[in-house]
Design a protein around this nucleic acid. Structure first.
Lengths: 326, 326
DNA sequence: CTGAAAGCGCTTACAG
DNA sequence: CTGAAAGCGCTTACAG
C-alpha cells in the first residue's frame, strides 16, 4: 500500500497525501481534505517507505550510534537502549555499531546517509573531521574533554567523582584512594571522573586522591589494596572507577581478610543491578540513565532541526546510593 | 559519488557497474571489464546507496531484532552485540527494538521492509502470523517450545539446567533445589532451563528438583533459602535460573549466616563478568555467546538465501565454570 | 488550494 | 557481452 493508494482512496493527488503527512510548509491544506487523507491512511494502514523517503531526501531516518572499541558495561548498554527508544519516539532509528568493526565507518556512513551520528567515545581523526564537515550533526557523548575539544555534549562525568569524595569525606575519611583501570582505552573517560574527585578533594581541603591502577581481577585488586595500606599515611577509603572495579576490590579485600568499610571503605559508580548483592552491599553513585538518554536524544533531534539544544542535566543526573561498603 | 560516476570513470554503462558489484547471475562480464569497474569503485570510494537498493528491491538490508518486553541482562546484551556484528559481516544491519515500544511493530515492518526478523521472545499472535505469512524470514530464538511450536531456531537452553544438575550430582548432592524467578514474563524461558534440570535429575535417579520462586531481592532470596532448609529432606544444592538470582541467593544466605557450598551449594547460569567477584566466587554455566550469535546470524543469512541452515550448536554452546560456590 | 512531473540511485528484464 | 530504459515510492519546486 503506497501513497498513491491513499490518494485514490481519499480522492486527492499523491502530492497532497505527502503534504498532509509531512505538514509541508508553504502548503495550506483545508481541514476537510486533511481529514480525508488521514482517514484513508488509517483505513489502509499506510506507512511511508523509509527507503523512498531516504532516497528522495538524500538522508535517512537512521542515527548512527558509534560505540568505542572497549568493553561496555551494563550502564552503557542501558544508555544505548534508552537512547534508541527516545530516538524512535522522534521517528529516528538507531543503528548501533562498534568502532573497529569489519566495515569502515565511512562506508557505513555513505551507505546509510544517516540523519545524525552519536559517538560514545572518540572517533578516528580523519573520519571524525570528514563527517563533521558534512553538515550532518555529529554529537559526541561520554568522551573526555581532551578527546573532543569542541564537544557538543558531554555527560558531566566529573560529578561522579565529586559525589564519591563528598560521601567519603562526610563519613570522616581524610585519606582517599582512587582505583583506576589500567586499560588505556578507558583513560579518556577515567580522567573525567578522576578530575572530579581531585577537584572535590581540593575544595574540601583534603590531600589529592592516591591513584592506583588495576586490572579487573582479584589478584590485581588485592595488590592495589595492599599498596594503599602500606602508605605512610594509609588510605582509609577508595573511590572505584565503577562498580565492576568496586566488586574486584571487595573480592581482593576478602583475600586479605579485610572488611569494608572498617578496614577500607569502597564506593563505586553505576549502581549495577548486582550492587545490592555485593558483600558488603555496595555504596555507589547511580546514574540516571533514562534522564541522560532523553537529553542525548533531544540534543540529536534539535541538531537535526537546527534548534539550540537544552542545557545538559547536571546534579539530577547522578545520585548517591548508600549501602554498607562506605 | 554514484554508480554513474563509477561507470563514467570505468568507461562502461551504469548497468555494468551494478552487474559487477552484485555478481549478477545470467551476466557474463569479462575479467578485464570487471577489474576496470572494481578499480574505479576503489578509486572513487564508491558505496551503493542503501536507500536506492532497498527501494528498487522492495526490501532493505535491515534485520529487525525484536526483544521481549522483559528486563534483559548482560548475556542477552552480549548476544545482541555479537549478532549485530555477525550480520554486519554479511552486509546486513541489525535494527534492535523492544516489543511494546511506542511504535507498533507492524508499522516499523512496513516502513523498513526488513530482510528478516529475529524474535528474541514471543511475538504477538496477530503480528507474528502476518509477518510469517509475508515470505520474509522470521527466526525465533530464545523462545520456549510452547511459544513457538514451529520454531526455526531455539538455543538449547535445557542444556544449562542439565549441566547444572550434572555438576551438583558429581559433587555428591542428591537433593537439589531450583531457584525460579517469580516474574511471569521469564517463565517461557525458565521452563526450558528447568525442564533440562528435571530431565537430568530423572536420568541420574535423583528426586525432581524442589522449585522455589523468588524475586530479585535479598529478602525474597533469604526466604527461599529458609524454605529449602526446612524441608523434611533439606535441599543441599540449588540451581539458580541465572547468575543474578545466584547472587541474590548468596546474599540471602549471608543474612542467615549460611555459607556456600557447605550449607548450601549454589550454581548459576551466564558467567556474568562479576561472577568471579561473588562471595564465594560463583560456579556457573558459561554460554558461548559468540558461537550462539554466529549460528543465529547464519540461520538468518541462510533463510534469506533460501538455503538450509546448519544444525544448532549443542554441547559446545555451554560449558561449566567451576569456582567455589558449588 | 491542488496536481502533474521531475528526479533521488539503484536493479533488472530486454533489445541489440 | 553491453547498454538504454523502466520503475521502485517518495518529496518538492512549479504551473495552474
Amino acid at each position: 500500500v503506497t501513497a498513491t493508494d491513499v490518494a485514490r482512496a481519499a480522492g486527492v493527488s499523491q502530492a497532497t497525501v505527502s503534504y498532509v503527512l509531512n505538514n509541508a510548509p508553504n502548503q495550506t491544506i483545508p481541514e476537510q481534505t486533511r481529514q480525508r487523507v488521514l482517514a484513508a491512511v488509517q483505513e489502509l494502514g499506510y506507512t511511508p517507505s523509509a527507503a523512498a523517503r531516504a532516497l528522495r531526501r538524500g538522508r535517512s531516518d537512521s542515527v548512527l550510534l558509534i560505540l568505542p572499541d572497549w568493553p561496555i558495561g551494563a550502564t552503557v548498554s542501558a544508555l544505548i537502549e534508552h537512547v534508541s527508544l527516545e530516538l524512535e519516539r522522534h521517528g529516528l532509528h538507531a543503528l548501533v555499531r562498534r568502532l573497529g568493526a569489519e566495515q569502515p565507518l565511512m562506508t557505513l556512513w555513505r551507505e546509510i546517509e544517516p540523519a545524525a551520528l552519536i559517538a560514545l567515545g572518540p572517533l578516528g581523526a580523519p573520519e571524525g573531521a570528514l563527517m563533521e564537515a558534512s553538515g550532518v550533526p555529529v554529537v559526541r557523548a561520554l568522551t573526555s574533554a581532551a578527546d573532543a575539544p569542541n564537544d557538543v555534549f558531554v555527560v558531566p562525568q566529573e560529578l561522579t567523582g565529586a559525589l564519591q569524595v563528598q560521601h567519603l569525606a562526610a563519613r570522616g575519611h581524610r585519606r582517599i584512594g582512587y582505583a583506576a583501570p589500567r586499560d588505556q582505552r578507558l583513560h579518556g573517560f577515567l580522567h573525567l571522573r578522576l578530575d572530579g574527585a581531585r577537584r572535590e578533594c581540593l575544595d574540601l581541603g583534603l590531600d589529592a586522591p592516591v591513584v592506583e591502577e588495576l586490572e579487573l581481577d582479584v589478584d590485581s585488586a588485592k595488590r592495589a589494596v595492599e599498596r594503599w595500606r602500606q602508605l605512610d599515611q594509609p588510605v582509609t577509603a577508595v573511590c572505584a572507577y565503577n562498580d565492576d572495579y568496586a566488586f574486584a576490590l571487595l573480592a581482593g579485600m576478602r583475600e586479605l581478610d579485610l572488611a569494608a568499610p572498617e578496614d577500607l571503605a569502597i564506593i563505586g559508580v553505576d549502581n549495577v543491578p548486582l550492587a545490592a548483592f555485593a558483600y558488603p552491599p555496595l555504596t555507589t553513585v547511580d546514574q540516571n540513565i533514562p534522564l541522560i538518554a532523553a537529553h542525548l536524544a533531544q540534543v540529536v533531534v534539535d541538531q537535526i532541526a537546527g534548534v539550540a539544544p537544552p542545557p545538559a542535566p547536571r546534579s539530577d543526573a547522578f545520585s548517591l546510593v548508600v549501602r554498607a561498603s562506605a
